[in-house]
Simulated assay, not measured.
Amino acid sequence: MSLKLPGLPYALNALEPHLSARTLEFHYGKHHQAYVDNGNKLLADSDLAGLAMEEIMRRTADDAGKAGIFNNVAQVWNHSFYWQGMKPGGGGQPGGRIAELIKADLGGFDQFVAEFKNAGATQFGSGWAWLVLAEGKLGVTKTPNAENPLTRGMVPLLTMDVWEHAYYLDYQNRRPDYMATFLEKLVNWDFVNANLAKLTSS
């Protein structure tokens, strides 16, 4: 398979006023597209061409000689996952299975919010904050640059992009404001519950 830029699950302006159409035009249309284009160029002459993104990521995660492939493929995966984790009218407290697990494994929604914001705030430079399933329990973690919890045996359920290009046009250097808005106004908890459902049905 070649890498492809997936369609967004909403219009470019659908997340306004929380994330502007201009941010999505650059973030999705320029940055995400560039990872797709660069990844395809690097994979073209590679023995990894044709593999699923998850498999490529696992095979290249700790191989310095294939860092370019890993970085671009992982960024395609990470961004595709990130877009799905937001929706118009999202955010706030979840319902369903994820609400039960947040209470049982993380001590409640307020504790989750504090941990998730802390993961994003303490990720120095570029990276990601994640809600994951690890050894059967929910956890919050962070990764730098393009790294993904999949390569460490965790299952991603939700991610928040904390690269500056994710929020700078709307929030400038106010990463905490962006993170608060993400949790209060944007998170697609239906997507998170769907990810959990896939795990129990497989």
Rank of each mutant, 00 (worst) to 15 (best):
K66C: 02
A74P: 05
D190F: 06
G108K: 11
N38Y: 05
L15G: 08
D170L: 10
W163Q: 04
A64D: 11
K103H: 14
H31K: 09
D177W: 09
V73E: 04
N148K: 02
K185E: 15
S2W: 15
A146V: 04
P9Y: 08
V73T: 04
A166I: 02
D170I: 06
A11W: 11
G92P: 07
V187H: 12
D45N: 13
A14M: 12
E147L: 08
M86C: 04
A61Q: 14
P94W: 07
A74D: 01
A44S: 14
G125I: 00
L101G: 01
H18F: 15
A146I: 02
G65F: 05
R174E: 10
D161S: 04
P156W: 02
E164G: 07
K103Q: 15
I102W: 13
P88G: 01
R58G: 00
D47C: 00
L48C: 05
M160G: 02
Q33I: 00
P94C: 00
L8G: 08
D47W: 01
T159D: 10
F70P: 02
R22V: 09
D161I: 01
K66F: 01
A14F: 09
A61I: 04
L12Q: 13
K185H: 15
Q172G: 03
D177I: 00
H31M: 10
H79A: 04
F112H: 05
E25C: 03
P9I: 09
V140H: 04
L131M: 11
L138A: 01
A11G: 14
K117M: 13
W130S: 02
L12C: 07
K30Q: 13
A180F: 04
V132T: 15
G108Q: 13
E54S: 03
K142R: 15
G108L: 12
V113C: 14
V132H: 06
L19F: 14
N173L: 08
G153H: 02
T200M: 06
W163N: 11
S2H: 14
G29T: 06
T141S: 08
A104K: 15
M154D: 12
A99I: 05
S126I: 06
D110G: 14
V36S: 01
A114V: 00
A134Q: 15
L133N: 08
V36Q: 02
P156C: 02
H165I: 09
T181Q: 10
L157C: 12
R22N: 05
H79F: 09
M53V: 03
Y82K: 01
L3K: 06
R97L: 13
L131G: 03
V76W: 03
L42M: 09
M160Q: 10
N13F: 04
W130M: 03
I98V: 15
V187G: 12
H31R: 12
A64H: 06
A67V: 09
N148S: 10
N195L: 12
T23M: 07
V187Y: 11
L5Q: 14
S80Y: 07
A61E: 11
V187W: 13
E54G: 11
G39N: 02
F109K: 13
G95R: 12
Y82G: 00
F182I: 09
L19D: 06
D105R: 10
W83Q: 00
L5C: 09
S2A: 14
P9W: 13
G120M: 00
A74M: 05
A64Q: 11
L48G: 08
S2T: 15
E16I: 05
Y171T: 04
V192C: 14
P176E: 13
H79E: 14
